[in-house]
Amino acid sequence: MDFGQIMLSLAQGFATTCLLFILTLIMSLPLGLIIAFCSMSKIKPIRWLSRTIVWIVRGSPLMLQIIIVFYVPGLVFNYPMESRMFAVTVAFVINYACYFSEIYRGGIESIPKGQYEAGKVLGMTSTQIFFKVVLLQVIKRIMPPVSNEVITLVKDTSLARIISVGELIKSSQDMMKATASILPLFYSGIFYLAFNGILTLLFNYIEKKLNYYQG
């Protein structure tokens, strides 16, 4: 097995990792906002339901959630999961949406009440106040914790291996067995490092862009 073959196999694993990463981000970022609104809702049952879900999801290991999402439909409802990737994506989206929702909630609640009052005095509706006054400040404030979560997500994708999804760690372990060498694991580490390096630069750039705005 030569270097090219190892790299090809790792690249295939990395493609799965990237796909999981992108799907999770695209779906969990908006879903998190919805959960955040539910958690701040004035209607008590919604607020409590939402906070209970967040508690359960944040309070249990993601690995456990992946296993439950994958096996329970077939074991309990006799409706087997067609795709491992789908199961893993669902588990990741729910998990990360809950983490994002708490970040959003912290961001939204950090905006002084006076701004809402000022908006009302000026005759703005609550929707206008949220989107035109509050949201941009919130985005700026939550950028550091969000970037933290996003970088954690890159590494968490390796948990998909538990239900045999062929992501980067799985491919590198396969290569490790095929070559009886530890090197493929180091190569996979380089993939993660490079990916996170790019993300770090990207977030630095975004934070700089948002700097004009003193929120």
Partner: peptide
């Protein structure tokens, strides 16, 4: 995963 083969079978995965 060989450890979970029976669960995979039962859950029809």
């Amino acid at each position: 995963d060989w450890d979970t083969k029976e669960v995979e079978l039962k859950s029809k995965t």
